[in-house]
Design a protein around this nucleic acid. Sequence first.
DNA 1: TTTCTATTTAGAATCATTCTAAAATACGCC
DNA 2: GGCGTATTTTAGAATGATTCTAAATAGAAA
Lengths: 134, 134
Amino acid sequence: MTLSSEEIRTELKRAGMRPTAQRLTICQYVLNQANHPSVEDIKAWVDDKFPGISLATVYNTVHALETAGLVQAIRFDHSDKVIYDSNTEPHFHFLDEDSGTLLDIQPEQVQINLNLPEDVLVNDISILIRGKRQ
Amino acid sequence: MTLSSEEIRTELKRAGMRPTAQRLTICQYVLNQANHPSVEDIKAWVDDKFPGISLATVYNTVHALETAGLVQAIRFDHSDKVIYDSNTEPHFHFLDEDSGTLLDIQPEQVQINLNLPEDVLVNDISILIRGKRQ
DNA sequence: TTTCTATTTAGAATCATTCTAAAATACGCC
DNA sequence: GGCGTATTTTAGAATGATTCTAAATAGAAA
Ligand SMILES: [Mn+2]
Ligand SMILES: [Mn+2]
Ligand SMILES: [Zn+2]
Ligand SMILES: [Zn+2]
């Protein structure tokens, strides 16, 4: 689901965010091209198109996008950096231990049956599958 | 599975670790009494029984215990601290969002069916269930 | 314009964790 | 019991991701 430049503008406005050049560039990467990028990843990519952008702006923007519900922040065991996920639907993840790539696993691909005490109300399930591709 | 002071000594020796007073105290907490403690938790508890123990020693010890396979380090989304788990068998976790308590979920309580591409070799599955108790 | 607010920015601050290098300790051996 | 040596402990510095601060800039509204 690639968003056009105009659609990104609209999304930002809808969220009450001014569609600044910095934000448009960051969104072009985070919402369209990137796969679970860290702030470091985002900064590196954006630096090319927008030299001199400040690290603080990248942090500010991902926080604003998170508040707006346009991305979700995730942190996994294997890295000490937060990553940003443009897929805001419930889904799970697969970590390819060879390449370090993190892939989305659709809920349909995972069938879970929980046998928990009756008084437990489940709000969310987070799953990380680690493995390799042969 | 509570270990006696003598059993802890034995475990440490078997791992090639000298059973120092600091390590015995830390193990008494981490292996017996604690529930998924952070280094901060460990330091706070041990400080009572062993005033003046250094933070570096707590870090050194949990790392040594991890290498020895006596604990496993885990990091979850909801906290920026690593926690140490004395349950080194494969298992999952439940986070009580009200109390912040992290509970073990036995593999028997979770039935998973994965529908992944054939070339995928799964090495590990990590699950965190968030919820509340009514 | 003028004004008001949102955004950007550099750099300082924070916090968990790791590193360093020196002092203390444990343990095998005499 | 003392000795020699490797291990452990320790204080404090360093690191790295992230957050905070306060001043400069830009955007929107009037
Ligand atoms: Mn990355
Ligand atoms: Mn804790
Ligand atoms: Zn994802
Ligand atoms: Zn556990």
